[in-house]
């Protein structure tokens, strides 16, 4: 009846195999969206925080986490949504940043998240954003922003003015 429950570290390792559905080169743990794993008696509780409030991948991620843990034999499982503290790209691991770059997505430049005030003013005064994003393909910093948004809520669209390739930038958030 009382089988030995897997350790939380074991569960973290299993979750490290669950890819982000939109950017499958990084896992949900590398993105920093799994906030806590704990046992409440026989029930495994996994707290997940959304990246963006309306990100449609959120429910897919929940489903993938549940599928993975059930496949590993966890039967009594509860997923918790945690809002606070709100997700930040500071939680994206170093390893994940290298994987993003290799995948063609420029990783977030820390400390440049929108504050609605200064950054907006700086962007307006300089005509464009003053943020320098290196091209993930050729490394050039001679790039320009095409749009503040991209193919998913967490990305913006850029173009390299040297190799001329368009690319995604994983926005600092």
């Amino acid at each position: 009846m009382s089988a030995v429950l897997p350790s939380t570290q074991q569960v973290w390792d299993w979750l490290g195999e669950v890819p982000d559905p939109e950017i499958p080169v990084v896992s949900v743990t590398e993105l920093g969206i799994v906030r806590e794993v704990r046992w409440e008696g026989q029930t495994l509780v996994v707290a997940v925080t959304p990246t963006y409030s309306g990100c449609p991948a959120t429910s897919v991620i929940d489903l993938m986490i549940e599928t993975q843990l059930r496949e590993k034999g966890v039967t009594d499982l509860r997923l918790e949504r945690r809002l606070s503290p709100p997700w930040t790209t500071d939680w994206v691991t170093e390893a994940a940043r290298d994987k993003l770059r290799a995948y063609g997505i420029a990783p977030p430049v820390d400390g440049t998240a929108s504050d609605g005030l200064m950054a907006g003013r700086a962007a307006r005064l300089s005509g464009r954003s003053n943020l320098v994003i290196a091209c993930p393909r050729c490394g050039s910093s001679h790039t320009e922003r095409v749009s503040q948004y991209g193919s998913t809520p967490c990305k913006a669209s850029y173009r390299c003015r040297d190799c001329l390739e368009p690319f995604d930038y994983f926005k600092c958030h």
Partner: peptide, 12 residues
Amino acid sequence: AKALKEVSYHLE
């Protein structure tokens, strides 16, 4: 706190 991060971006 969660919504503000996104709305800052909207305002910019």
